[in-house]
Design a protein around this nucleic acid. Sequence first.
DNA 1: CCAAATAGTTGGTGATAACCAATTATTGGT
DNA 2: ACCAATAATTGGTTATCACCAACTATTTGG
Lengths: 142, 142
Amino acid sequence: MDLPPTLLAFPTFVLHKVGTGSRRALAGRLSEEVGLSLWEFAVLAALADFGAAAQREVGDRLGLDPSDMVRLMDGLIAAGLAVRDRDPADRRRYRISLTPDGQEALTRARALVAEVERETLAPLTAEERELLHELVTKVFTR
Amino acid sequence: MDLPPTLLAFPTFVLHKVGTGSRRALAGRLSEEVGLSLWEFAVLAALADFGAAAQREVGDRLGLDPSDMVRLMDGLIAAGLAVRDRDPADRRRYRISLTPDGQEALTRARALVAEVERETLAPLTAEERELLHELVTKVFTR
DNA sequence: CCAAATAGTTGGTGATAACCAATTATTGGT
DNA sequence: ACCAATAATTGGTTATCACCAACTATTTGG
């Protein structure tokens, strides 16, 4: 694959290529080695970071449609990684929380993500990785 | 959308978010303002950068399946942006080349991409944009 | 109390990506 | 001359993404 200089001259083009490449690699290994999809990992991370929450709330935070959230949670619950309890104070809502298995899966996933990321960013020094992180974060939180 | 710190702590996660975000923005404006898809833009760029070539060759360079390449070229030819001539030296191959209209569309597309990119990377200084470009290029050409 | 809003669920849609197999026309190697 | 390889084409598949409408159950504001 020998891409045209015209495209490679655009930072965002290369950025997107790197982004999708690393996402693909990560999705594959996360699925194989921990049995999680990227979205499932994101939900577990949200539950760990923000604590138990309504299904809607987690979806909103991740930018996920409520209908997609239902199906995602179905999977996590079937896998025993999360539980869905009705919020007694408002019985429309659930209180989604991590099970011990979910905590453990998240821990393993986190380590794997870090590992795959180290591999992806191997061409960079530690300072460069940090710098890259800062730059994209600055763009992202525009 | 309030993403979990666990995810934001991964450079590649933020990178991917920025990549897809800018791609979405670019695809929309390129379609509206120049009438090109991103793949069509890529093909025009390849033709301009590498000169007339066989359909297969352009597809290989861009990492595009031959069957998808056929359908993409059908569109460009119908729009009058490229022409498909049989290579007289090997009549299995085409010689794909840009028409004047194709050249002109590419010029406008290039300018638009640069403009959208400036908007996307607005939070960065010129030096930071250059640095970001270098860093992602280093990762990409692992 | 009643209407409107909210949480969750179900069952979709349309776009795109990234393939793959089979076929036809043509060429190159031996 | 013949066979294998190549270029292009056709007609698919599978997965994911990012939605949307309609519905039920429940709560809240006026």
